[in-house]
């Protein structure tokens, strides 16, 4: 039975696939898939050399603090960072008192709700609070940035490329795809998946942020720093993970060598 019906079923699927293949091939020849502007002009992220890159890389806390400052003074107007609590900032080198001060002075206040009166109000943030959600009424939907660098391929490099990638739409593009002119209110950026995004270039002038550690706040430096910071927000346990990883691999390597020798011992008389 199996040998009778088996080949029949096999041929059934094969013929159906051949039919799909033939139709597909015919369509591919008669109506080749149109080439799109995204396909031709989208760029892969630039290289970004961060201290945390690689198996031995560690976060540069000074840079993370600078990146946090850029987030606070530039990005936080529109973008939330809701997976991060103020207390988490201790991990990038702030003291308890500094964290408390940062929380207290944060522009967006924590919301309160009085269950007796039903009143909603505001209070200063405290260290154990998450960074409050930002509500944005303008055009576009600014995504939460906590996990941004894990939610995009080449996360850190992507953020850096996007921040530094704003430019005029190339004339070549408009010549080839006249319909693809960047719509009003959007901004051309070849590192963005469909080339046009609602966010205008956020970091535009040198010295937009004044770094307390004396680093020169060039556009490139600020973009790098905030990318580094967002790599940290997405994976705050990165350093610990790699550290643990080396210890575990070292132990396993020794254990495996011993297991190999033991296996050879046991099998010595059987080959």
């Amino acid at each position: 039975m199996v040998r009778l019906f088996g080949p029949l079923v096999g041929l059934f699927f094969a013929v159906a696939l051949l039919w799909s293949f033939g139709n597909g091939a015919y369509t591919a020849i008669t109506e080749p898939a149109p080439v799109t502007a995204e396909h031709e002009f989208h760029l892969h992220p630039k290289e970004l050399d961060l201290a945390s890159n690689g198996a031995f890389g560690r976060f540069d806390k000074q840079q993370l603090q600078r990146g946090f400052q850029v987030y606070k003074e530039v990005c936080a107007t529109c973008h939330s960072l809701k997976q991060i609590a103020f207390r988490d900032l201790k991990a990038i080198g702030y003291s308890d008192a500094e964290v408390k001060a940062i929380a207290k002075q944060w522009a967006t206040k924590a919301t309160t709700f009085n269950p007796v009166t039903g009143d909603r109000g505001e209070r200063d943030n405290i260290a154990s609070d998450r960074i409050p959600t930002v509500y944005y009424a303008g055009q576009g939907v600014p995504p939460d940035l906590s996990l941004m660098t894990k939610a995009r391929h080449d996360g850190g490099a992507y953020v850096y490329s996007l921040l530094t990638g704003y430019q005029e739409q190339p004339a070549e593009l408009l010549k080839k795809f006249p319909d693809s002119k960047t719509p009003d209110g959007l901004h051309y950026n070849p590192y963005f998946a469909n080339l046009n995004l609602a966010m205008p270039a956020p970091i535009t002038t040198d010295g937009q942020v004044t770094y307390s550690d004396g680093t020169k706040a060039s556009v490139d430096q600020m973009s790098k720093d905030v990318s580094a910071f967002l790599v940290w927000t997405a994976e705050p346990k990165l350093d610990k993970r790699k550290q643990t990883g080396w210890a575990v691999l070292g132990f396993l390597l020794m254990a495996t060598v011993l297991a190999y020798l033991a296996k050879k011992n046991v099998w010595a008389d059987k080959h």
């Binding site: 132990f251 396993l252 020794m254 254990a255 011993l258 297991a259 033991a262 011992n265």
Partner: peptide
């Protein structure tokens, strides 16, 4: 030979405990 076998089993034990 015994030493190697004992060492291998001990490593497994330490790993399991960790």
């Amino acid at each position: 030979r015994d030493f190697i076998n004992i060492a291998a089993v001990s490593f497994a034990g330490v790993g399991g405990a960790a």
